[in-house]
Write a protein that binds this DNA or RNA. Structure first.
Length: 653
RNA sequence: GCCAGCGUAGCUCAACGGUAGAGCACCGCUUUUGUAAAGCGGUGGUUGUGGGUUCGAUUCCCUCCGCUGGCUCCA
């Protein structure tokens, strides 16, 4: 007897074992038709899954359910693999092809070992083949086989990677059987679940072809990865593709050019951004704001040179650890080499060590907008988000063990203040922890355990939700990272807080304790923005170039209706300027409509339109970005309104 | 660094192996304008670099540089 309990509490009984599909049929023929899988006792299974004797909780999944999209994408990956084999022959070896759950742009990928790699121009052809396979509505069957048989079968198909994967499963998880999925003459080793037939996979698009190392290890062979997306209907697919196009318009590289914010010129060098006046204005606003917050929080501002002796970075460990990703040392005749600084900490430590410190001095907080240079791999460079020269809003807090957690806590507060003031609330928090199996870390296990405990204590105390990333720690200590997404869904680390017991030891940092004996302090490295460059890159995309008033490079455009009022317009311009508002005048001989359009395209928050009426009244007609009409108001009233919006760092109109 | 794609005017993009073009921007002239583009005219290019194939290369092939999407890396 099989007893099935449905989500609504109803129970159905069957005399003998039944498939999930039969359960759905019993509920309603219509449900059975739209069913694609079932959640059985909490686990998502194929519709063909047979329920054995006993009670079972069954939820039939249709294309409207959350879980459905993932199954669809996974099956789409199989259809992709089948298409590849159909088109490029049995020499195509398929490896791993998962559905993506996090990445909003894609949906799934499949990695292939190809006799010769496919390129972007092959994608339409592959897509067409996928649609052909979908149109055939091939039933998808699951068979469970003993590993020996499965290996034999995959070997017969020439699928060496699958053989390797099965052998790994045997070794690591002692599996005795694996499941194979068959659709038409295509067979793949896969855990499933999958859709009942390929006919569901009709709204598909392939988005890119790329390389990916087998098992993600650069010592392994590079495979060909094809990314795609899949939906249950064409409308959703079209919408999705349109969303991607829309997102691209927010790309900071596009907007940076359009709005004259920054420039990356090959003449200067890859990954070395130049800030144009407008971008530099924005940057300066951020820096000034944060600097004020730092001083209010007891930080002291320091300034240090852009290069330092190599020995300093040998001591810190940065040179040996990151040798490959640094600009090579500057060799000098008869003198130690100099390194262009990849980090500010050694300089700040040198400042700390310049004199003796009492426990009464601690915590000591040394802050600097420090520009550093790292020779990032060429393939890594990306607009402002990954560059070779960037400015960190860096600071090092040197404190006692007892002070550490409360200092970490105020660092977290500061990072949150920064993100929330700018409306960047869609971030996630990641603890970067040590990978015990790696030898890239410095220092003893005891301090590591302690430091990891310190950061955990703080995030727990603050009730923050976070994930832990094993192996995401810095070589000298664990960290709390604040991670956000760019317009294409890629994740970037912005703010970071790092606990370090190591460098104080390497540099023999000391303070004299209450007991009149020397002690070793602990150090926190922290940067709320992280890198100004990356932060602003993300900020550009976050606001789509339409910055809040306090950050806008140009805050108001004065637009005279005709040259007849140019004298009054000049007066308005001068007064705004005198009151510290960043103002631009459009005195071109264009019509007012054209001037408005131009200012709108530049995403200037306010337009002060002045014609003869306004001139006579000593007023302006104020138009907000996006066509908001604030009406005609006296010049003073307008200035007061703007100054208020600026001083409160208001996010919007 | 690796795989794939791309590189044409300041920007966005055209151009069967046969004299390199459009829109915007810029400059000039006309228009003096009321809430998202007035009209006319003009300037602007060794087609990323170096080589090769060809009677002839923006177009085909190779080298290098850069960019884009991934992979790896990210102090």
């Amino acid at each position: 007897m099989v007893t099935v309990e449905l989500p609504d509490g109803n129970k159905i009984e069957f005399e003998s074992p039944v498939s999930a599909l039969q359960v759905a049929e019993r509920i309603s023929p219509r449900l059975a038709k739209s069913a694609i899988a079932a959640r059985i006792d909490g686990t998502v299974r194929d519709l063909t899954h047979v329920l054995d004797e006993g009670p079972h909780a069954v939820v039939v999944i249709t294309d409207r359910d959350e879980e459905a999209a993932e199954i669809l994408r996974h099956t789409a990956a199989h259809v992709l693999a089948q298409a590849m084999v159909n088109l490029f022959g049995a020499g195509v070896k398929y490896t791993i092809g998962p559905a993506l759950t996090e990445d909003f742009q894609y949906g799934y990928y499949y990695d292939f070992d190809m006799p010769s790699p496919v390129g972007a121009e092959d994608l339409p052809k592959i897509e067409a083949e996928m649609r052909r396979i979908a149109a055939q509505k091939l039933p998808i069957e699951r068979v469970e086989l003993p590993v020996d048989e499965a290996i034999a079968q995959m070997r017969k198909l020439g699928q060496d990677y699958k053989v390797e994967m099965i052998q790994d499963l045997v070794r690591t998880q002692q599996v005795k059987t694996v499941s194979l999925y068959r659709q038409g003459d295509f067979i793949d080793m896969c855990r499933g679940p999958h859709l009942p037939h390929t006919g569901f996979v009709k709204a598909v698009a392939l988005l890119s072809a790329a390389g990916a190392y087998w098992r993600g290890d650069e010592r392994n062979k590079m495979l060909t990865r094809v990314y795609g997306c899949a939906f249950f209907d064409d409308k959703s697919l079209k919408e999705h593709l349109a969303n991607i196009e829309e997102a691209k318009k927010r790309d900071h590289r596009t907007l940076g050019k359009q709005l004259d914010l920054f420039l990356i010129s090959d003449d200067v060098g890859p990954g070395l951004p130049l800030w144009m006046p407008k971008g530099a204005t924005l940057r300066m606003q951020l820096m000034n704001w944060l600097q004020g917050e730092l001083i209010a929080r007891g930080y002291q501002i320091v300034a240090t040179p852009h290069i330092g002796r190599l020995g300093l970075y040998r001591t810190s460990g940065h040179y040996p650890y990151y040798k490959e990703s640094q600009f090579p040392p500057i060799e000098m005749d008869g003198e130690d080499a100099y390194l262009i600084k990849p980090m500010n900490c050694p300089h700040h430590i040198t400042i700390y060590k310049a004199r003796q410190h009492s426990y009464r001095d601690l915590p000591l907080r040394l802050a600097e907008f420090g520009t550093v240079y790292r020779f990032e791999q060429s393939g890594e460079l990306n607009g402002l988000t990954r560059v070779r020269g960037f400015t960190q809003d860096d600071a090092h807090i040197i404190c006692t063990q007892e002070q550490l957690e409360s200092e970490i806590e105020s660092c977290v507060d500061l990072v949150k203040l920064v993100l929330e003031t700018l409306g960047l609330t869609d971030y996630r928090v990641r603890l970067g922890l040590r990978d015990p199996n790696s030898d890239k870390y410095a220092g003893d296990a005891e301090h590591w355990a302690l430091a990891e405990q310190n950061i955990r204590n703080v995030v727990r105390k603050l009730g923050m939700s976070y994930t832990e990333g094993i192996g995401d720690a810095v070589f000298y200590g664990p960290k709390i990272d604040f991670v956000v997404r760019d317009c294409l869904g890629r994740q970037w680390q912005l703010g970071t807080i790092q606990v370090d017991y190591n460098l104080p030891q390497r540099f023999s940092m000391e303070y004299i304790g209450e007991d009149n004996r020397p002690h070793q302090p602990v150090m926190i490295h922290r940067a709320p923005f992280g890198s100004l460059e990356r932060f602003i890159g993300i900020l550009i995309e976050h606001f789509g170039g339409a910055f809040p008033l306090w950050l806008s490079p140009v805050q108001v455009a004065v637009l005279p209706v005709s040259e007849k009022v140019s004298e009054y317009a000049d007066k308005v311009y001068a007064e705004l300027k005198r009151r510290g508002i960043r103002v631009e005048m459009d005195s071109s001989p264009e019509k007012i409509g054209a001037k408005i359009r131009r200012s709108s395209m530049d995403k200037i928050p306010y337009m002060a339109i002045v014609g003869q009426n306004e001139a006579a009244a000593g007023a302006v007609s104020l138009r907000g970005r996006g066509g908001v009409d604030h009406g005609v108001m006296p010049l003073d009233a307008m200035i007061a309104k703007l100054l208020d919006e600026i001083s409160t760092r208001s996010l919007g109109q």
